[in-house]
Design a protein around this nucleic acid. Structure first.
Lengths: 336, 336
DNA sequence: ATCTGTGCAAAATGTTTGCACCACA
DNA sequence: TGTGGTGCAAACATTTTGCACAGAT
């Protein structure tokens, strides 16, 4: 369900590719591209062939096959392997790299995205000094419907909305943790000035939370069905507990009682951690639609850093400059 | 390079499988199984066919193909996909589930194991309520040799030794971190009794470290070439910083100054964390050769827990029982 | 006008199957 | 002695290619 604008953009990319390669824009190639993009899915050559045949009885299998090769070469399609030993293709334009979980009974394939996995891939290629070309993770299993012998319902969802939904969920949870975190700090603060500062921060996070809840409402109102789509963006919510420790976690780490300076210091390093985390997270999306969402999110964490920095200046005096967020951080390379 | 004992075991498994299915043990099936196991690799049907043909000119391609199906069904082989659209097989018996990084130029495939990835798979199937069947992660790229246009050298290593090497490296690093950690705690301890207790713990870890270094020497002496094998067990050494925080990390977490009770409490929770971590880690290996190594390792961490518990009793009196390690812990499920 | 694209059919590639003999148990 | 096994060749499934004609720039 790509927007019309994107269809035009992709046609232009294909045209440019053909021109560069001194190839021709033909009716067949147009029809094939349009049909391929129209169907968000994992079309095999045969399926696509049958589909374009509806539009134009004369188009041959070979042409479909050759055109898909060209589209792949042009960067508009990706050939994927769903384990049924036939070539399948999916649209690539402005879509993040993702993986598939495939039902071995009904062949349904669910897409999911995992920045964690992208990171693992980076570690692996760097460790073995490979120049990366491509990678994929596939999980095969029996889907819920097939386990219960229900007919498999195949629903198509707008992938942009699903992505936005998942990102928003992460954002909401982050803000909730933030509120909790600052309320805990306020409790832990041993003096009144600190308490107030942290309550303010908690209020700030709560304001964000309300805004996000508004966005959530809008999203859901726009498309109720989106709630039924399977999770696309795979996120380990435990990660958040590392960014903003829960009250229990704080206790476990012996941070129930903090001086003003310690508490501010802790808050700053948490916000810096969150900023870095979401910035890196965003980077995993390359030039795809999801990137902006998380960059904005990282930006907000940065604003929090500044707020805290201001509190520090106000409460501690500029005499005690807190350490700046320093890149590079703990790093991704090993010490073997 | 499987041991003779394992060859016999696998033959027995195949025999039992054939018996159960009322199939017959034939000369061809024996030859094919032996050749398949003899070659630790990723044989295609064609390659294996050529190989058994050396032994017995009359064996047909179809028989090889059918036998590999049977071996797969019997659980002795796994069919893998190295992206060249032909069936390839690898031995499965007592080998942990692993993944492949494949050179698109010379087709060389390096195996690597990542418990982290196994965990991700578990999260994914549970999230989508799939009944898991199989999963694999493949990374394609250009290997170092091909990047520099060197002839690809194909070396075979004893997979057991390589696994042991990698496990030992992790263990060594863990103990090193442990020594550091206890030395830091000793410094941070505000009273002399605590300081001594932690120096003792540090010495304990150091003793382990020496033992492990001994094991390392033995391993390397037994087979020097093993050091040249690519990393098999992929481990994120940053993980260790989470188990036993480095001095910098301790400082960052505002734990430079601890009362005896706090310090003991911290040490106990770190050791518990390490125990749990390695126990879970070991579980990812199912019934494979690597499992034992990490279980033993987890066991040692548990002994540390008990040592610390004793210190607590001795120094704090049994009046302050510290919290027990509680399963279930922070858990793997999300809070979306 | 030229040079690439196309459809068709044939080839190529890899795996599976049918069937008449073969050989374990 | 009989059931399942084997090799061979043919069938299958899917993708790729060769070629003569069609059509885009």
């Amino acid at each position: 369900m790509a927007s019309n604008k994107e269809l035009v953009e992709q046609k232009a990319i294909f045209a440019a590719y053909l021109k560069k390669k001194k190839l021709k824009i033909t009716r067949q190639r147009q029809v094939i591209l349009e049909n391929f993009l129209k169907t968000e899915g994992h079309l095999s050559t045969e399926e696509l062939y049958q589909q374009v045949r509806q539009k134009d009885r004369t188009i041959g299998y070979a042409t479909v096959s050759r055109t898909m090769k060209a589209l792949t070469d042009a960067g508009l399609a990706r050939e994927i392997d769903l384990g049924d030993s036939r070539s399948r293709f999916e649209p690539l334009y402005k879509r993040p790299h993702h993986h598939h979980i495939i039902c071995v009974e009904c062949q349904k394939a669910i897409e999911f995205l995992s920045p964690e996995l992208e990171q693992l891939q980076e570690q692996v290629v760097s460790r073995y000094r490979f120049q990366p070309v491509r990678h994929h993770f596939q999980v095969f299993g029996v889907c819920e419907d097939c386990q219960e012998h229900r007919p498999a319902k195949h629903e198509d969802f707008d992938s942009d909305l699903v992505f936005a939904r998942d990102a928003l969920r992460i954002a909401l949870q982050t803000e909730k943790n933030g509120v909790n975190f600052y309320q805990s700090l306020a409790k832990a603060a041993t003096d009144a000035r600190g308490r107030n500062a942290f309550l303010e921060m908690a209020a700030e996070e709560e304001k964000h939370l309300r805004e996000l809840e508004g966005e959530w409402e809008t999203l859901v109102k726009r498309n109720k069905r989106v709630l039924k789509a399977p999770v696309f963006l795979h996120f380990d919510y435990n990660e958040l507990n590392r960014l903003f420790p829960s009250p229990e976690e704080l206790q476990k780490r012996h941070l129930e009682r903090l001086s003003l300076e310690e508490a501010l210091h802790l808050a700053l390093s948490m916000e810096q951690g969150a900023h870095r985390f979401f910035k890196r997270y965003a980077e995993k999306f390359n030039d795809t639609r999801g990137k902006g969402i998380f960059l904005k999110f990282a930006e907000e964490e940065l604003e929090h850093c500044e707020l805290i920095q201001q509190e520090c200046d106000r409460l501690l005096g500029s005499s005690t400059p807190l350490p700046q967020s320093q890149e590079p951080e703990i790093g991704s390379e090993t010490t073997a």
